[in-house]
């Protein structure tokens, strides 16, 4: 039984593969994508609960991909990964709707904390929206 699903987007192959393996061990459903374009192809509303997204990637960078993802599936929570963090890159992600950012290298415990919190937010937001929808349907039966 998996708890929730995660997409790891990072161009560093070693990091990506280790991450996917570790997250699966933590009973998460987990896929990896080597770049933003691939990630967007794999991505669809409802497919992933949380995305772990590297800011710095060749081709389209993480911030751009984040914006696309938020357009496709606003409920999905995105945690940004930054290597060389400047104040700027940390904030940009949050401004465009990322849940939080993590700085590489990070330990597994912190990562799990962040992912769990992101999923918790996604779940509670979704519940709220579902409730509102039910109420609307009940008020105006079609």
């Amino acid at each position: 039984m998996t708890r929730y699903s995660v997409l790891v987007v990072d161009d560093e192959q070693d990091f990506r593969e280790i991450m996917v393996k570790k997250l699966r061990k933590k009973e998460l459903e987990c896929d990896g994508a080597p770049d933003g374009e691939t990630a967007l192809q794999m991505f669809s509303p409802g497919k992933y609960d949380v995305v772990l997204l590297d800011v710095k990637m060749p081709g389209r960078d993480g911030i751009e991909i984040l914006q696309e993802m938020k357009k496709i599936a606003p409920m999905t929570e995105v945690v940004m990964l930054t290597g060389h963090a400047s104040v700027e890159s940390g904030i940009n992600g949050i401004k465009f709707g990322a849940f939080d950012y993590l700085m590489k290298p990070m330990d597994m415990e912190r990562l799990m904390e962040k992912l769990d919190a992101a999923y918790e937010r996604k779940r509670s937001q979704q519940q709220k929206i579902e409730m509102a929808q039910i109420k609307k349907d009940m008020a105006m039966p079609s």
Partner: peptide, 14 residues
């Protein structure tokens, strides 16, 4: 300095 400043600015923004 960079890491700590980022933590602070991001959290203040939040």
């Amino acid at each position: 300095i960079r890491a700590k400043s980022t933590i602070i600015t991001v959290n203040v923004f939040k």
